[in-house]
């Protein structure tokens, strides 16, 4: 559950409403605040990670109106009225999403920093029905870098869910 929003106000701030993980959230943000910084600094949803802030690593992936996008290359004001799902909304420690469980079982992470982005990306890909073969899944997941080198375990976890092993 997001904490109450505390915003350092600015005359050019805009009122926006985001549906974050199913919760209607109203913010006042200046236009130059990225969706990523709004989530992390303003809504205390720090599960979404900042790895490069330039759209080059995928750690900040969130699901916006059903599509996976990079929250670092999105201004919060552009998403007024949108539905945003972050890793906190995918599942909780008590009720893990199948892909989260698969990530644990397949040891699909080490340091854990790219993990929320990988999972949001994987969930959105599976929901969209994209990626028929393992080769295609690898291509469609290539927007999420993993520096620890958990690549094969990540793809194994996704394929396991895709193949119905977690139903």
């Amino acid at each position: 559950m997001p904490k109450p929003v505390t915003i350092r106000d600015n005359p050019s701030s805009h009122h926006i409403t985001l549906q974050v993980n199913g919760l209607e959230t109203t913010l006042r943000v200046p236009p130059w605040v990225s969706l990523l910084d709004a989530l992390r600094d303003h809504l205390d949803l720090t599960g979404t990670k900042k790895g490069c802030d330039h759209g080059q690593c995928g750690a900040c992936t969130v699901i916006c109106d059903g599509d996976r996008i990079l929250s670092c290359l999105t201004l919060a004001v552009m998403k007024d009225g949108a539905r945003v799902t972050t890793i906190e909304g995918i599942g909780t420690e008590d009720r893990l999403h199948p892909l989260q469980q698969a990530f644990i079982d397949y040891d699909a992470f080490q340091c854990g920093y790219c993990t929320p982005g990988q999972i949001c990306s994987g969930v959105a890909m599976l929901d969209a029905g994209h990626g028929e073969s393992r080769e295609e899944v690898k291509d469609l997941m290539s927007g999420n870098l993993c520096r620890c080198g958990a690549n094969t375990n990540i793809i194994d976890a996704i394929m396991a869910v895709k193949e119905g092993k977690y139903e």
Binding site: T48, I90, G91, T92, E93, I104, D107, F109, G112
Partner: peptide, 21 residues
Amino acid sequence: RRRIEGARKVTGQAKYAAEYN
């Protein structure tokens, strides 16, 4: 053994240095 902190890492609950608000 699976990682003890696994559930925290896959749910975004693991906090890193820049995440203490």
